[in-house]
Amino acid sequence: MTGDESAAIDAFERLGLTSYEAKVFIALHRLSSGTARDVASVTDVPRSQVYSVAESLEDRGLLEIQQSNPIRYRPVSIEEAQATLEARFERERERAFEYVDTVKQESATEETQEDIWTVRSRDRVDDRVVDLLSQAEETIVFGTRLPSFVTESIERRLEERAAAGVSVLAISRTESVRARLGTLEGVETAVPPAHRDSDERSGRIVIVDGDSLLLSVVADDGSETAIWSSDSLFASVLIQLIQASDELQPVAD
């Protein structure tokens, strides 16, 4: 086997053919057509293997089988073979990268970064809020202006932590939200300062035990994105800044 032929076989393998398939395909182009015996005589592919290899090449659209005695094989033209392999490569490329794109989109909803985490999509923010509330041992501040951001799971968790002795404060400028949360046993409600009444992008705020924080915003399409941090310098500093700005100093109903 020459160096050029070896390189060609390697190239066919990278295109998805096996070594035997590449050798049989090349041999048949050298012969124009031939039997399994003919192919075996010009390659190192055993005659017993030529039959199955030829069937595989036929399935790939790279040769034709003449039902004679003995069976003869004829390769498709180089142009047709090239078009067939290019189409196959394109299909596999699309399949591979469609999957990668799907994984990428899925991972876009995952939490990222180390001390500051990002969560995208309403359901995942819901889950993160419930998880943070579950960890509360001393205090909880939960706030939102949107009734849809108060789920049954959040309500249950607020009531459970209040029953466990945790101080729970729910703040909202929206009367219906305060009324709803005010029915929960052990949960106090209040109105936050009015200096941000025009804010239509705020989503939720959660502060747990003074060291865990979640803040979310709402995009024009209604989607929610949150950042959260726990037991970190970032969370500690931001909580202090929020408290210092009177954002969490409630106004009595």
Rank of each mutant, 00 (worst) to 15 (best):
G3E: 07
D4F: 15
D4A: 15
E5Y: 11
I9M: 06
D10N: 14
A11M: 14
A11K: 13
F12C: 09
R14K: 15
G16R: 13
G16M: 08
S19P: 00
E21W: 05
A22E: 00
A22L: 00
V24L: 12
F25T: 01
A27S: 10
L31M: 04
L31Q: 08
S33H: 13
G34Q: 07
A36T: 11
A40H: 09
D44Q: 10
P46I: 06
P46R: 08
R47E: 15
S48G: 14
V50L: 04
D59R: 15
G61S: 04
E64S: 13
Q66Y: 12
Q66D: 11
Q66P: 00
Q66R: 09
Q67S: 10
P70V: 05
R72A: 02
P75M: 03
P75N: 02
P75R: 01
P75W: 04
V76C: 04
V76F: 02
E80A: 14
E80K: 15
A81K: 07
Q82T: 13
L85Y: 10
R91Q: 08
R93K: 10
E94V: 13
Y99H: 14
Y99A: 11
T102L: 13
V103Y: 06
T112C: 03
T112S: 11
Q113E: 13
E114Y: 06
D115T: 13
I116G: 01
R122D: 05
D123M: 01
D123A: 14
V125T: 05
V129D: 00
D131H: 11
Q135R: 15
T139I: 08
F142G: 04
G143W: 00
G143S: 13
T144W: 01
T144R: 01
L146R: 12
V150Y: 01
T151I: 06
E152H: 07
S153A: 15
E155C: 09
R156S: 09
E160W: 05
A163H: 07
V166N: 08
V168I: 05
L169G: 08
V177Y: 04
A179K: 10
G182C: 08
L184I: 03
L184G: 02
E185Y: 03
G186F: 05
T189E: 01
V191E: 02
H195N: 15
R196H: 11
D197Y: 06
D199Y: 05
D199T: 08
E200Q: 07
R201E: 14
V206G: 02
V208Y: 07
V208T: 14
D209F: 04
D211W: 03
S212F: 01
L213T: 09
L213C: 11
L213I: 15
S216P: 01
V218T: 08
A219W: 01
A226L: 00
A226T: 06
L233A: 14
V237P: 00
V237K: 14
L238W: 07
Q240L: 10
Q243D: 12
Q243A: 12
S245E: 11
L248A: 07
Q249F: 02
